[in-house]
Amino acid sequence: MPLSSALRPLLAPAGTLRAAINTGNPILARPAGDGGAEGVSVDLARRLADQLGVPLQLCVFDAAGKSVEAVTDERADFGFFAVDPVRGAGIAFSAPYVLIEGSYLVRYDSPLQDNAEVDAPGHRLVVGRGSAYDLHLSREIRHAELLRAPTSPEVVATFLAEQADVAAGVRQQLQSDAAHHPGLRLLPGRFMVIQQALGLPRSRGAEAAQALAAFVEEAKASGFVAQALARHGIEGASVAPPAG
């Protein structure tokens, strides 16, 4: 469904749609062999560029914080982010298109058995710097100490190197890392559900934000998001319900 050509100056003012892609979240994107990226968010970026009738440029970052900065500073036209009020200061979000679980990982011999036990004095909790988990836990954790890995994919390595008590992140990433490091286990359940949305600089105005939001709703309703999740073999993430 082509978008109005009147939206091109708002969504792609340079004539090319610049999409900030975060490969630190393997559910949504991962590095490609050519130095680019592939995944659900890349598929959505291509769909938006096609509907606008403009070329697509991928701006690939290895951490969520870097992607947020690129869009906030208008070095990219839009990006794919977990909705968070801190990021919302400079970014206008659509409704979510995907929901992802956040989990905790510990050693097999850890006494921790439940998510509610993590926030206690003396516990050290590792999280990816600038990630949605970092932002959420920075507000919610009252007693445990937060340690920050440079990026989300480095959380488990930092957890092991620092001999910390808990690692926090995307369930699928933690499961993958645990498979390569015997002696680790995930706590049951989840400590948060992350709402993944599209976002653009607030300076682009209400009309641009509304157009991006409408694009997301159409991508969900048409089955495109569900098909992209299936095409890339993604498990543990679900299509978000319609806005409202």
Rank of each mutant, 00 (worst) to 15 (best):
G90K: 11
S41Q: 15
P26A: 08
Q163F: 03
P111G: 01
A116V: 10
V86Q: 12
R107D: 08
V155F: 05
F191V: 09
I100S: 10
Q195D: 14
D77F: 05
A70K: 04
A149F: 05
F191Q: 03
L44Q: 08
H180A: 14
S131N: 12
A211H: 01
D165T: 13
G130I: 08
L147M: 10
M192L: 14
G199M: 09
V40E: 01
H136R: 15
F80H: 11
T158H: 13
I100M: 12
P121E: 15
Q227S: 15
L11E: 03
E140L: 09
P150A: 09
L146D: 06
L135I: 10
H136E: 13
A219R: 00
E145M: 13
D34F: 10
T158F: 12
A243I: 07
A208E: 00
F80P: 04
V60G: 10
D62M: 02
D50C: 10
L3N: 01
A63N: 13
A76F: 05
A243Y: 02
G53A: 12
A12W: 03
N115Q: 11
A32Q: 08
R8W: 00
I91C: 03
T16L: 09
H136G: 13
L135C: 07
V106N: 05
A12E: 06
F215R: 00
F159P: 08
L7G: 07
V40R: 00
D84I: 05
V126F: 07
D73I: 06
F93C: 04
Q57D: 14
Q196F: 06
V42I: 15
A230H: 09
Q195F: 06
V71L: 09
L44H: 06
L48A: 05
E117I: 00
V193K: 01
P96H: 00
F93L: 07
A240C: 05
I27D: 11
Q113A: 13
Q57P: 06
L44F: 09
A211F: 02
G244A: 15
M1A: 13
N22G: 09
A70H: 05
E218D: 11
D84V: 04
I100N: 05
P26S: 05
L137I: 05
D134M: 04
A209V: 01
A92M: 01
V42W: 13
L52I: 11
A37T: 08
P111F: 02
P188I: 04
A89G: 14
S203R: 12
R185F: 04
D62K: 04
P2D: 13
G88W: 01
L198I: 06
L186I: 02
G88N: 11
A221Q: 15
C59F: 09
R75N: 10
A209I: 01
I141W: 09
E235V: 14
G128E: 11
S4P: 00
H123M: 13
I141G: 02
